[in-house]
């Protein structure tokens, strides 16, 4: 693991969330340090997206505490999260099809000049940002509707970086991407770590996770099901935690020992 700060920049303590009859999250714990990539894995419906949305202020938590740089904070609206320095790229990208790339990148934090939109500076910075991230799109002035899925994904990630956040959350950023674009996104994640940002990366792809993550947190049926440092952990161990498969050599031995001691 790379050097991480002592106090986590973001920490979740015993967070629970329910939707009507569905208990989506139960007593979830999570810590992210500056310069750390935390992978959040779990089966479909495990509650990963819900967890992301509680951090991002889309769904306020029902119970539990969110700590930011050691202080307990209330995140009730997306603005609260943004204000702290949490940027989120959602699984459903939620871009405005009718706005162009610049408009989407700066939506909600437009640059002003004499009180009116400073389109020139926004366009210039957009081009610079996309260039430093090696993002290739035909033009920053075409509507999002005319971009491919992969191009939308990188625009959405670039959008998250505009506000100079301290923590970036990526919900399945590579799910819809081809080989080359996946590699680009993973490079991007490493660049974020170099810039000492905390990154929460949600992914289904073990190869992606082991390639860039420092720590893997497993979520199962809305509960923590283990946290592993990537170094020294095998894919099988992680997958076992994801599927809840107890039928392996380790658990059998544990169970036998438990019986023997009784």
């Amino acid at each position: 693991m790379v050097h991480v700060s002592a106090t986590p920049v973001l920490a979740l303590r015993g967070v629970s969330k329910r939707f009507g009859a569905v208990q989506a999250l139960t007593d979830v714990e999570l810590e992210v340090h500056a310069g750390e990539v935390v992978a959040l894995v779990g089966d479909n419906g495990a509650g990963k997206s819900t967890l992301v949305k509680t951090i991002a202020g889309v769904h306020p938590v029902d119970e539990g505490v969110i700590e930011w740089e050691g202080r307990s904070v209330h995140i009730n609206r997306p603005q609260d999260a943004q204000g702290l320095g949490i940027a989120t790229v959602y699984q459903d990208l939620a871009l405005c099809d009718n706005l162009d790339v610049v408009g989407n990148l700066y939506l909600g934090r437009e640059l002003l000049r004499y009180g009116s939109l400073d389109e020139v500076t926004m366009e210039k910075r957009s081009r610079e940002l996309l260039n430093t991230l090696s993002i290739r799109i035909p033009s920053v002035r075409i509507p999002i509707a005319s971009l491919s899925g992969g191009q939308r994904q990188v625009v959405a990630i670039a959008r998250a970086l505009i506000g100079e956040p301290k923590v970036v959350i990526l919900d399945e950023p590579t799910a819809a991407l081809g080989v080359e674009q996946t590699a680009q996104v993973l490079d991007l994640v490493e660049r974020l770590r170099e810039r000492r940002l905390g990154v929460i990366l949600i992914s289904h792809n073990m190869a992606d996770v082991t390639a860039v993550a420092d720590t893997v947190h497993v979520l199962r049926l809305g509960k923590n099901n283990g946290a592993f440092p990537v170094k020294g952990t095998t894919n099988e161990q992680i997958i076992a935690a994801i599927t809840g498969a107890t039928d392996n050599a380790v658990t059998r031995r544990l169970a036998r020992n438990a019986e023997a001691t009784q």
Binding site: T88, Y90, G103, L107, G108, E110, L117
Partner: peptide
């Protein structure tokens, strides 16, 4: 040319995207 106008277009384009952008 104003943020208000941009917000109107954003809400007309995607309510969810607008909401998440803090509008």
């Amino acid at each position: 040319r104003t943020t208000f106008g941009r917000k109107v277009f954003a809400v007309g384009g995607s309510i969810e995207a607008a909401r998440r952008a803090g509008i």
